[in-house]
Design a protein around this nucleic acid. Structure first.
Length: 594
RNA sequence: GCCGAUGUAGCUCAAUGGUAGAGCAGAGCUUUCGUAAAGCUCAGGUUGGAGGUUCGAUCCCUCUCAUCGGCUCCA
């Protein structure tokens, strides 16, 4: 079988710096790919009529695609797993076998392996390599482990549907996912990591930390923020807006709906209609904005611009709605309504490189503030695109040079650019190691043409300006989702919805507790008081579960000494401390964004 | 949108072709307590929604909505 390396596979790479992700020291791909053969062999033994797709190694394991009328059940999975263990026990060698093209074709035809035949057609060369393990034979370029004995620990993890060769118009195959390791310990570690990731799932934490909710009756993909979630979001929004102001952006505000004519002019009506929400009032058709660009463009166009004005940078926390297909929603990570930290830069072609460079460094600064790892991807000209070749080259070169001068490593996604220009995407990963695109920096030739965006040059003539679309967090929703999983809900103090929880021991301590609360609120701290008639143990337990960074316990001793007893969510009991000292301590942590 | 699974109290889950139960949360009472869960009592449900099969459906079937795992798409 073939094992195509593509960006799609790279997407499954393990998290960059998260939760101590453990990569096996040896490259485990060969082991996993070999295990996928054993999976196919077991399926063939149990279900001889099944046809084979492909079975590559992916970052944490492998999969194999099968065509089978009846879906695999979880029970089937267990049976297959058992048969795989038997095959492995047979200690079969992986043997390479070179066949001529006609021999290969004959073999696959005999087995009616129509997908393999299709793969064979796409292969170059006269001799085609196959690998055998016992009676099982598979078209494959290898390499493989020597013997099935080397598979010491494996597990089938899930079943899912997948299109043949990833194309929607192709038949749906059934994909069995699994993973394999060279020791049992590594497998256990891996499974534990998955457990931990599930515990950090932002959808779960969003509920238990009372941050946000979704409702059947409200609609799929529409986030409803609860007080604590709203607080968290506002802090991030204020932070990001301030950072933009520091870097020469001007804040603007634009409407949520526009007449359909504007969307026709911008091209969204033609290219983006499927994803847009439309409505008609008094014979006038409107659409809810899926993007913020048109508004910013109208501001630019509201007067003539001189080269002296450029670059102009507009910023808006713009809420957009996109009708995502029903199967793709994923908590905050993929919603139908979301807010972008959206900015547009209008500049001269000569300014392009510098602007890109600054924007990339801006994005990385922001990501570093939250301790994220990241990956840069440069997407180049797709087949179907607008704009002259010269423009594309200029822009792509500007992007490349900006990255080069910033000494940043990046991958190239050839032909993956938007139809209107090349882009740099930055991905960060969630608890399960899934990468999410957050920052995106896109050069656009389309808008400047369509809206005739220009400026007057030194020569007194009109010149076409260049437009950059960029979002650093991407969508606030997605970023929050990743953030929740990144911190496992234990946010640094500066963004914690509740920074301090005061826990009073008995009713007679309430007055003092209230006094302390007032004092802390005067320092702009977010404080809650738990004065319920409950035991201190219970109050602590609940504050721990809420992951409040600082707990202040107040009883007779503290009232008498005019102090607080400080406990951290890391379960540290730090004992008594003076109020002012505590304020200094927490203020410093907030300032340092720890 | 596609493949598959799921949907029972606010939350986590149990049970059944004869209209459902537990723990936590909530309310009331007792208790005023020192670093991860005090006790008692009460209340809480058109079993996601619509239709069908059946004497009878929460359970079986169809449709629909939503969620989950993927595919595809994407911020």
């Amino acid at each position: 079988m073939t094992c195509k390396r593509s960006l799609v596979q790279i997407q499954y790479r393990p998290p960059l710096i998260f939760i101590g992700a453990i990569m096996a020291k040896r490259d485990p791909d060969t082991l996993r790919h070999s295990t996928s053969h054993i999976l196919a062999a077991a399926v063939k033994e149990l279900f001889p009529k099944v046809k084979l797709g492909i079975g590559p190694a992916i970052s944490d394991g492998f999969y194999y695609d099968f065509e089978k009328r009846e879906p695999f059940t979880p029970e089937d999975l267990k049976r297959i797993e058992k048969r795989m263990a038997e095959i492995i026990k047979r200690a079969l060698p992986f043997k390479k076998k070179m066949l001529s093209r006609s021999q290969a074709q004959e073999l696959l035809k005999k087995d009616k392996e129509r997908f393999k035949l299709e793969l064979l057609k796409g292969l170059k060369g006269k001799r085609i390599s196959f690998y055998t393990t016992g009676d099982f034979i598979d078209l494959c370029k290898g390499p493989h482990i020597k013997s099935t004995k080397e598979i010491k620990a494996f597990k089938l993890t899930s079943i899912a549907g997948a299109y043949w060769r990833g194309k929607e118009t192709n038949p749906t195959l059934q994909r069995i996912y699994g993973t394999a390791f060279s020791t049992k310990g590594e497998l256990d570690k891996h499974l534990k990591r998955i457990e931990e990731a599930k515990r950090r799932d932002h959808r779960k934490l969003g509920k238990s930390l009372d941050l946000f909710s979704f409702h059947d009756e409200a609609g799929a993909g529409l986030v409803i923020y609860h007080p604590k979630g709203a607080t968290l979001r506002r802090i991030i929004e204020n932070f990001i807006e301030e950072e933009h102001k520091k870097r020469g952006y001007q804040s603007v505000i634009t409407p949520h709906i526009y007449k359909i004519d504007l969307w026709k002019k911008s091209g969204h009506y033609d290219f983006y209609r499927e994803l847009m929400y439309f409505f008609k009032i008094e014979k006038q058709e409107y659409a809810i904005k899926p993007m913020n660009c048109p508004g910013h463009v109208l501001i630019y166009k509201s007067k003539t611009r001189s080269y002296k004005d450029l670059p102009i940078r507009y910023f808006e926390l713009g809420t957009v709605y996109r009708h995502e297909r029903s199967g793709v929603m994923h908590g905050l990570m993929r919603a139908r309504g979301f807010t972008q930290d959206d900015g547009h830069i209008f500049c001269t072609p000569n300014q392009l490189k510098k602007e890109i460079e600054d924007t990339v460094s801006f994005a990385l600064d922001i990501l570093k503030t939250f301790g994220f790892g990241y990956k840069l991807i440069l997407s180049t000209r797709p087949e179907d695109c607008i704009g002259s070749k010269k423009n594309w080259e200029h822009a792509t070169k500007a992007l490349k040079e900006a990255l080069k001068e910033s000494k940043l490593e990046y991958e190239i996604a050839s032909g993956e650019g938007a139809f209107y220009g090349p882009k740099i995407d930055i991905q960060i990963s969630d608890a399960l190691g899934r990468l999410w695109q957050c920052s995106t920096i896109q050069v656009d030739f389309n808008f400047p043409e369509k809206f005739d965006l220009s400026y007057t040059g030194k020569d007194g003539r009109k010149h076409r300006c260049v437009m950059i679309h960029r979002a650093l967090l991407g969508s606030i929703e997605r970023f929050l989702g990743v953030l929740i999983e990144h911190y496992g809900g234990a946010f640094p103090v500066w963004i914690s919805p509740v920074q301090v929880k005061i826990l009073s021991i008995a009713d007679r301590h309430l007055k003092y507790a209230l006094k302390v609360k007032k004092r802390l609120e005067k320092e702009n701290l977010r404080v809650e008081l738990d004065s319920r008639n409950e035991k201190i143990g219970k109050k602590i337990r609940e504050a721990q579960i809420e992951k409040v960074p600082y707990m202040l316990i107040m009883g007779d001793k503290e009232v008498k000494n005019n102090t607080l007893s400080l406990r951290l969510r890391s379960e540290e009991d730090l004992g008594e401390i003076k109020i002012d000292r505590f304020i200094r301590r927490i203020s410093l942590a907030i300032k340092k964004k720890e």
